[in-house]
Structures are given as structure tokens and as C-alpha cells.
Nucleic acid binder design. Sequence first.
DNA 1: CCATGTGAATTCTTTCACAGCG
DNA 2: CGCTGTGAAAGAATTCACATGG
Lengths: 230, 230
Amino acid sequence: MRRGGIPDIVIRRLPIYERTLKQMLSAGVTSISSEELGERIGVTAAQIRRDLSYFGKFGKQGKGYDVARLAEEIAHILKLDRQWDVALAGFGHLGQAIAHYRGFEPNAFRIAAIFARNPEHIGQQVNGTVVLDEAELTPVIREMGIKIGIVAVPAAAAQDVADRMIAGGVRAILNYAPVILKVPESVWVREIDPVSALQSLTYYLDNGDPSHDGRAAPVGESLATEAAGH
Amino acid sequence: MRRGGIPDIVIRRLPIYERTLKQMLSAGVTSISSEELGERIGVTAAQIRRDLSYFGKFGKQGKGYDVARLAEEIAHILKLDRQWDVALAGFGHLGQAIAHYRGFEPNAFRIAAIFARNPEHIGQQVNGTVVLDEAELTPVIREMGIKIGIVAVPAAAAQDVADRMIAGGVRAILNYAPVILKVPESVWVREIDPVSALQSLTYYLDNGDPSHDGRAAPVGESLATEAAGH
DNA sequence: CCATGTGAATTCTTTCACAGCG
DNA sequence: CGCTGTGAAAGAATTCACATGG
């Protein structure tokens, strides 16, 4: 989780910085200090400065950062200044929601191929992308040169689908299945795991409904560990 | 991110331990060492032992852990030995996918209330749960005593919905909107953020399609930071 | 005078390594 | 004899605090 260089935890914060900067830019803000940006995100100013310092010097002393410039710099670091084709496997409720989600295109990603097992789904179109037979997954991914896969199939099929994506050349996987994927060292995986997230949240909740509320409140989390307010 | 006690990062690993143990149990495994469990999950044996040591002594020297017993202990720690009612706000593609997802019920959660803004959605049913008008959100949550909310509305509406959930008594939020929610200290938030996840993955990918493939491969991540194989 | 960038200090997390128990 | 549970060590990440430059 380190490659040769920058800590992965830093890399995982950059998209939030970029998103926030873009939001501020469209709100008309042109300049910002690490203090203000940190407050907006729920992170310390020192952390932002330290994170950015891995990549260069983007600020002006006494002034702060130019919002547009910093957003672009981060986008460049993350290679978001191009569009990435993504392959989606799975076209159940979840897969369809992902296929229809309009938040990818404006953020450097395009669902360029969709694969389903159910014959009724094959041939359907979403935003001009035809749903293909999952049997075609490996060759289509290879021919299209796709490097990013989204696994949105049932748990039992997830490892197989991931293996076949990797065989086609995929190097990065976003995994929605509640399964730990075994992948080669050259492949990166990120998990989307709402059930685990809920299951860790219940730890902090009171069990009973006895009293109405309030007793010492747990302190919330921050982007440092996952992301929240406070 | 610490309350008075156990590191949140430890709490966030427990659901994976519990899930894996349950899987092994249904595969007929009754006893397991930290070594084997760690290998299965992609985590060191020492980390598992250390994590568990925050809560007690669950193993037998020379023998390992009783799979059923350990799964139950962890479920108890996380308060998963009861069912939690959850309120879902948002009934677009994403909200509908969440509402239909069959992975919550067997894992201690029940979507007990669904709220939509679109009048065409109000009155629909999913698994016996009627979709209600989002305007009713606060009172219904309060009357039902719901403590967990899922935010699956567009970014622009997310903060308002979260505020109204909290007003109704929600103390834990699973947020699918690409927005940093501002919440009181007594409320915990976990983010589900596929776009950020993808945007951090591209950092590790080659930019061009020049050569066919391979050069030094980045090392993958592990549960320690997010979850994966290797 | 303000806010960056960064050594140094601190705090948190993981790993080592082994005494001790079944 | 094997594997847990845990002090102690090592390693990472965060925060402090300030010299420096605009």
C-alpha cells in the first residue's frame, strides 16, 4: 500500500480535496487557505499542507492556494485529466443503478462496457452502451484496452468475474461484492461495503430504548480514517 | 474517532472477521487459528490477535479459535445480535437498488422506512415497506425509534436530509452522496464513495497505452487500509 | 502580518517475538 | 508442541510549531 512513494492514505484523500475545490470554484471562490479548506472537509490544515507537500509547492505564503490551479494540479496527479473507460460486470438492481449513475462522466470515468449473465438483460442499452454477454468479458475488455473494472455481481460469482477481468488486462477493481478478492500484486482493489460499514456503526449505538437519549457522546470520525463532519 | 476506548480502525475490521467466520462455519470449519483466518482475509495473524485482545480472550492456546463462538462474540461486540431498523432516504436508481438488496436482512439490518420526494414513488412497496413522502421523514423516524439512516439522495439534498434524520433521532448515517456531511459529535457517518475510490485508483494506473503492459507493479493494499487480496 | 512548507515531536498502528497455557 | 495473548519495538501518520517568503 505504498508502491515506492506516497502513502496510499494520502492518495485516497486527494479526490476529496479535488471535489471540494471544484465545488468552491463553481461557488465563485478563487483563493483559499489550508485552514478554510480543512474546515470545509473536516481535516486539519496541517494535514492538507503535508499531503500536498508530497507532490510539490502549490500555495503562496500569506495568501493560500489558487482554487482553480490546485484543483487542476490534483486532477493531474490523479490522472483525472483524461477519461477512463470502465467495465461494469453485473446488471441486477445494483449494476443498473451504477450504469445509470450520472456522477461518473463528469469525473473522468465512462462506463464503456456492461456485462450481464441474464439473457433478458443482454442487448439492452444504457446511455448508448449495450449490455453484453458476460461470457465475452475477457476478450472485450482486452480489445477495448479497459484497465478499470467494477464488480457488481453476487458474492458467489465475484472472484470468477474479477479473475476474468484481470485476464483481460484490468489493473484496478472497484468491488461491490461482500467478498475478499484474491488478486495479483499488480492489481489494486477498493471495496464498497455498505453492510460492513453499517455493522461497524452499530458498535457506537446504544442498544436499548430505555432512556430517551443522551449520555456521553462518542466523538465522530474524520476523513483521516474514513470521512465525516464535526 | 476513539470514544474512550477502542480505535475505530479496529472496529471497522470486525465486520470482516465476523463475515469470514460465518462463511467458514457454513463451509463446515469449526476451529481456526489466527494464521489461517488472517490468510483468508489478507491481514496478519498478529493483527487479528491484537484486535481481539481489546475485547477479551477468545482463543485456546495450541488450538486456535472456535469459529462459531468467535463469530458470536464479534457479533455481540458489534451489537449484531439483534435487528436494527434503518431509514432509507432516496428512491432513485440507487435508493431502489438499496431497498431491494437482500444482503441487509441476514446481517442485522432491516429497511424499515423508505422516503422519496417524487410523488410517483410514494406509495410503492418494496418487501412490504411502503415508500413514504420525504416530508414525513423526521416524525416517522422519531416515532419508529430509528437510529440508523441511509442517505441516497442527490448531493444537493443530502445535508438537509441528514439534518432531518438527526432531528428525528438518527445517530449513525451511511452516506452515499458525494458531500461531506456536517453532523454533531454524537452522530457517526460512514461514506460510500465510489467516485473517490475510482479517482484514487487511477493514480496507480499507467496513463498511456504505449507498450502492451508490465513494468514494476505497485504493491496492492490490504484490509489494513481498505481491503483487498494479496 | 499571514499562511505556506517542513523538521521535529507526538500519537497511533502494526509487527515482532516469546512466556505461558492447554 | 502449537498457538494465544501481549509487552516491547518498529513503523506510519498526524500534529506542532516556526522559519521563511510574499
